[in-house]
Design a protein around this nucleic acid. Sequence first.
DNA 1: GTCTATATCTCGATAGAC
DNA 2: GTCTATCGAGATATAGAC
Lengths: 195, 195
Amino acid sequence: MARTQGSHSDITGPRIRSAALRLFAQHGYAAVSMRQIAKEVGVQAGALYNYIPDKQSLLHSLMQGHMRELLAAWQAQEKPQDALALLEQFVRFHIGFHMQRSDEVFIAYMELRNLSDENFATIEALRRAYEDALEAVLKQGVEAGQFTLPDTKIATLAVIAMLNGVMTWYRSGGRLSLDEVESVYWDMVRKSVTA
Amino acid sequence: MARTQGSHSDITGPRIRSAALRLFAQHGYAAVSMRQIAKEVGVQAGALYNYIPDKQSLLHSLMQGHMRELLAAWQAQEKPQDALALLEQFVRFHIGFHMQRSDEVFIAYMELRNLSDENFATIEALRRAYEDALEAVLKQGVEAGQFTLPDTKIATLAVIAMLNGVMTWYRSGGRLSLDEVESVYWDMVRKSVTA
DNA sequence: GTCTATATCTCGATAGAC
DNA sequence: GTCTATCGAGATATAGAC
């Protein structure tokens, strides 16, 4: 869709972010050129720089936006007091949220090494905060005697790694519904943290 | 280490593969140039093409070599008959092998999208074969009544995803020995697949 | 087998017209 | 705000001397 001159400041910005998100997720940050992004949006490459300072800032902004929304969404959840119910909620929240934002999640995990040092630090802090949210749940369950875990930090990382694995294979419309998948994973997580 | 002219055919090939492996793992295939690899080896960029047809072939060769060695190493293991003991062996083998080859593993999981279509197909087949090896163990345990799993395919992917998470955080010399880490993960895997 | 030199291309980013 | 045009750098890969 070749575009002639005109003013589109209010929609071009989001469209750039959307196109970059999809292309970065599909081909990787380093393999995607600014010209590809511009072509997808329907503008010339030079026009991109009215909206972003440079390519690196675009990547960082996408990752930071995602991580902030992830944290905010979890914090906004109404939470039960019981640790087991809370852990189930986390498992279902994590799978559900991540399946809705597979491109964002993919980038947030795969493109860390393409961030500048300072940009990496900010994203890493957000990721750590999310891990801490899960570890708090596990610690609560251990203190209440509901969970049996030799190391809550390792367990935190193990659970998140397991849940993230969903995204590598699940496609909607397949053999199982998302709710069924959540149940299968919750069953495994529940058993792995209890005695 | 600038190199003058000379004949080094027997050692330059492996040195190219070694340098490419490390650089691809650290910065990503798309972000690494042939010049960087050549500089690391101590030759000029043009000399690389005496050993590899092109950059894509180099990536594919590295990934294929790793996956074949992984499969061969598992198949070469002396295996117990009991499904529970077999699963423990798999968990410890997987963690041990992958920690010894962190660069290879990283590339094998991160650079799939940078393979050409046909190269991707061959690597994907090898990865599938490895997953099938684990699923065979799980199925054996289910049939023997030792494991309780609603879906062995999902369980296979969940276990591998969980175990792969080790590589994102474990560094030798840390708080836990590799054997202790294996034990923690085995404990979680064992509980997650039993009733 | 490695070198130097280079063909050909694409990259990120900028300048200035409209 | 987007266009065209372009700069300077760096990319993959090849050619030919030694």
